[in-house]
């Protein structure tokens, strides 16, 4: 199968999984903004994404994307190391137009993975996972996303780690987004510039949304989510 045994096929896997993950975090970023506005509305979303079958299926799918993306990152890197050979240059100079991120995607990816583990521990473990196994005695309920956010970012250590994480994702995306389009072959002299611009604007906006949430819950925990705004006319759960 060419997807697995050709270099472009393997890159295509990275590209498609990458794009899917970008779409996911775009959704996630937008969803987080709701928490800044209304506690109830945010918790409504959390409830919708609780242990429902569709949410679990989507989560599994998401996990599969992440795992494939990571596995192929390692496969590609191992192959590339081998292609590079054992002899290293004594002197190397990075050409100006080469982005730092492009040469450090794996390192950035590893940082992102570590951040992801922290994130799962802080939220998913306490929410969806807790609901599935029916865990009791937790500080907040599984659908009370708002308070879990508050809880997490009240800890400056977590907040700082999250900010580092977001910066790493930003770097990863600034290269990853146009790179994905390039791999799909949807680029050229003009579209390369466009995708690069789109990628930078897009990733900056999403990361800014995440960052605002972190900073807001860290420094103004009592001011956020106070609007009386309901997402749905009825209560979930």
């Amino acid at each position: 199968m060419w997807l697995f045994n050709s270099s472009i096929g393997r890159k295509l896997i990275m590209s498609v999984t990458g794009i899917a993950l970008v779409l996911f975090i775009t959704f996630h970023g937008c969803m987080n903004v709701v928490a800044l506005i209304s506690k109830d509305a945010y918790n409504t979303i959390c409830a919708l994404l609780g242990s429902n079958w569709y949410a679990i299926a989507a989560t599994l799918g998401l996990a599969a994307l992440v795992v494939i993306h990571i596995i192929y990152a390692f496969i590609l890197t191992i192959q590339n190391r081998k292609a590079r050979g054992n002899n290293k240059y004594a002197v190397t100079e990075k050409p100006d137009k080469v982005e730092w991120a492009s040469q450090n995607m794996l390192v950035l990816g590893i940082i992102i993975c570590l951040g992801l583990l922290l994130h799962l521990f802080n939220f998913w473990y306490n929410m969806m996972f807790a609901e599935i196994i029916g865990a009791e005695g937790l500080k907040y309920g599984p659908a009370d996303g708002f308070n879990w956010i508050k809880e997490t970012f009240s800890n400056p250590v977590f907040s700082c780690l999250y900010i580092i994480w977001l910066v790493a994702i930003w770097f990863h995306l600034t290269h990853g987004m146009w790179s994905a389009m390039q791999t799909l072959g949807l680029s050229g002299h003009i579209w390369f510039q466009r995708w690069k611009c789109i990628g930078q604007v897009w990733s900056t906006i999403i990361m800014a949304l995440f960052l605002i949430v972190v900073l807001a819950f860290w420094f103004f925990p009592d001011a956020v989510g106070q609007c009386d705004f309901k997402l749905l006319p009825f209560a979930v759960n």
């Binding site: 393997r10 890159k11 050409p95 995607m105 390039q182």
Partner: peptide, 27 residues
């Protein structure tokens, strides 16, 4: 190796070949 779009190649190409070619090959 597998191309990871670092653009180092086009930066050093003495004949100014660009990665637009790589996109076309992918396509």
């Amino acid at each position: 190796g597998n191309c990871t779009n670092t653009r180092a190649c086009e930066a050093v190409c003495p004949k100014c070949e660009t990665i637009a070619n790589i996109a076309r090959l992918n396509r």
